[in-house]
Amino acid sequence: MATAAEVLQAARYWGVSIATAESCTGGMISAALTDVAGSSDVFDRGFVTYSNEAKMQMLGVRHETLQAHGAVSEAVAREMAEGALDHSTATLAVAVTGIAGPGGSEFKPEGRVCFGLARAGRETRVETVEFGPIGRAEVRRATVAHALALMAGALS
């Protein structure tokens, strides 16, 4: 499991700057990164886009994508990550959108989180992780840890 400090160190080494686009975590990934002293040399910005309107306004997520797939989808995670790159000076962006709970539905259960990872000049990666109904706080913590691991993997 990668730490925020390890992600920042790797980003520094490779000359990469980072942005985040967060929905269900409400800024927790950005907070984890900026909790590390000196992070400002590689962390550019974080977008907290909890509402669909914010996703569209701040990141350029298309209304059609939200209508067709819903906010908790790999399609939206992709557009969030790519939008974070487009609306920042970052060269690596991670995006998360999910259902932390409580609640969910038969089709989008509690604990489902979609991740997007965009890097300048490379194909955007998306994936869905089913953390299960482990509770809101645990889903959010697990999402932050997984996002850090995705960034670390992209920087190794």
Rank of each mutant, 00 (worst) to 15 (best):
E110V: 04
L85N: 13
A100W: 11
G98W: 09
T89Q: 15
E82I: 06
R78T: 12
K108D: 14
E79S: 02
E79T: 04
T91D: 10
L85D: 13
E106N: 00
P102V: 09
A81R: 02
P109I: 10
L92E: 10
D86H: 14
P102Q: 07
S88K: 07
A95M: 10
G98N: 11
G83S: 14
V94N: 05
R112Q: 12
A84F: 04
A93K: 13
V113E: 01
A95N: 09
C114Y: 00
S88F: 00
L85M: 14
V94C: 10
V94G: 05
G98A: 07
T91P: 14
G104W: 01
A100M: 08
T89Y: 09
T89R: 15
L92G: 11
G83F: 02
G83I: 09
F107D: 15
G98S: 06
G116S: 08
A93Y: 11
L92P: 11
A77C: 10
G103V: 00
A100R: 08
A81W: 03
V113N: 01
I99Y: 08
A77Q: 08
T89L: 14
H87N: 15
V96R: 02
V76M: 06
I99W: 06
V76Y: 06
D86M: 13
M80S: 05
G104C: 05
A95L: 04
A84G: 13
L92A: 09
P109W: 09
G116C: 09
F107C: 00
G116F: 03
P102I: 05
V76C: 06
R78I: 05
V76N: 03
T89P: 00
G116N: 09
S105V: 13
A90D: 03
R112E: 15
A95C: 13
E106W: 00
E106T: 05
A81E: 03
E110I: 00
